[in-house]
């Protein structure tokens, strides 16, 4: 129900997520982000264009990941969130905290 693909783009790590991010599997997203941060990859782009469902469990992992990258002088930036994701980002006020880009390339080149 969730697929996570990770690729390196020079100094930036792209994390592409698709499917349903819910309380059953949000920890997989958290683990993927945490694995990058502990490996020294702290300039992250999270592409959420193919996420059709995200509950507060997914947002929790994004906040944890954002804090972890910032502590390591990096950032976690969002690329092209789906409408469903954008809605929950806006409801929780995270849209004004996260850097959100309309395309994957814009997010990657923002670093």
């Amino acid at each position: 129900m969730i697929e996570i693909n990770i690729s390196d783009h020079q100094q930036v790590t792209l994390v592409e997520v698709s499917g349903r991010v819910d309380s059953m599997n949000a920890n997989e997203l958290g683990s993927a982000i945490n694995h990058q941060v502990t490996g020294g990859h702290v300039r992250l782009v999270l592409d959420l264009s193919h996420v059709e469902y995200m509950s507060s469990a997914g947002l929790r992992e994004i906040v944890v990941g954002l804090k972890a990258t910032k502590r390591a002088s990096g950032d976690l930036r969002i690329a092209q969130p789906s409408d469903r994701v954008r809605e929950v980002l806006e409801m929780s006020g995270l849209d004004s905290i996260l850097n959100i880009y309309e395309s994957q390339s814009a997010a990657i080149t923002s670093y």
């Binding site: 509950s55 507060s56 947002l59 929790r60 906040v63 944890v64 954002l66 804090k67 910032k70 929950v88 409801m91 929780s92 006020g93 905290i97």
Partner: peptide, 17 residues
């Protein structure tokens, strides 16, 4: 929703949603 990142707890949004 206006809480800055440094003051945010990770959870607590469920009932709000």
């Amino acid at each position: 929703p206006h809480t800055p990142l440094e003051d945010r707890k990770t959870g607590g949004w469920g009932v709000y949603f």
